[in-house]
């Protein structure tokens, strides 16, 4: 495997792993969603992301080798997307933070002439819907009942420290990071306030400076997620499925 040998590969892995890992997490909702209509909605988002992941990983190598045979330290996804689902509010908070970011990022990539432009041009439409879904639920949970408000606020607060990483530079990805960060903050603030919630005010990154997902440093739940995801594939080396 030519892991991250070129800037293009590094960038493709970062984007591809984000999509792959978040898709996997959303897939864990199957059979557990709060209402049947939401089973269908969450699965749609998960399928979009999985499709994106497959295209992106295929730019670097064999999609299955990359998904199933890499060790934890070789995954390049941001820590935000690997965070466990928690309750529905936590999943929605994760979706809000990530999908607004992904929408703006893919918008920039689609408008540029870089290697990701064609892929981003298709994906940006999917992601617009993911963002819409997250925003609508943020409004309903924030401005719903006392309980849902409290849960949503807690979820936004808890995940806030994983958002800073989304704006760190990624080699091979030429984007206007200032615009990305400002656009993200403005959009998230607008939705959060409309939902009668408060934008968290803590630091946007953890205190530990060893690095983050883009450097292959992940949170503890990620190892267990990978163990589950990779176990069957690895139990039958060389098999086709």
């Amino acid at each position: 495997m030519t892991l991250g040998e070129t800037p293009l590969a590094t960038a493709a892995l970062a984007l591809g792993d984000d999509a792959l890992v978040l898709s996997h997490r959303l897939g864990e909702w199957a059979g557990h969603a709060p209402v049947l209509e939401e089973e269908v909605a969450l699965a749609n988002i998960a399928l979009d992301l999985l499709g994106q992941a497959r295209s992106l990983l295929s730019l670097v190598g064999d999609e299955d080798e990359l998904a199933y045979l890499r060790e934890e330290r070789s995954f390049r996804n941001a820590q935000l997307v690997e965070q466990p689902n928690g309750d529905f509010a936590r999943t929605i908070a994760r979706q809000l933070y990530f999908s607004v970011h992904q929408h703006l990022l893919y918008g920039q990539l689609a408008a540029g002439d870089g290697p990701f432009a064609p892929l981003a041009g298709k994906a940006v439409k999917e992601v617009a819907y993911h963002r819409d879904h997250a925003e609508h639920w943020t409004l309903r949970l924030g401005d719903g009942t006392e309980e849902s408000h409290a849960r949503m606020q807690r979820a936004l607060d808890d995940l806030w420290r994983y958002t800073g990483e989304l704006f760190e530079p990624v080699e091979g990805l030429s984007v206007d990071r200032t615009a990305l960060r400002e656009g993200w903050l403005a959009a998230v603030t607008e939705v959060v306030e409309r939902a009668t919630l408060k934008l968290p005010d803590g630091p946007q990154t953890g205190a530990w400076t060893a690095g983050a997902g883009r450097q292959g440093i992940h949170t503890e739940p990620f190892g267990r997620m990978l163990a589950e995801m990779q176990h069957l594939h690895r139990s039958h080396p060389g098999a086709s499925w």
């Binding site: 897939g27 089973e39 699965a43 594939h233 098999a239 499925w241």
Partner: peptide, 24 residues
């Protein structure tokens, strides 16, 4: 759904997710 998180290839994972979604 018991096997979505363990599907042994990404192609199979997508198929299975779409199928379970259809059932909903």
């Amino acid at each position: 759904a018991n096997w979505i998180t363990r599907a042994p290839s990404l192609r199979r994972k997508a198929i299975l997710m779409a199928k379970v979604q259809d059932e909903a």
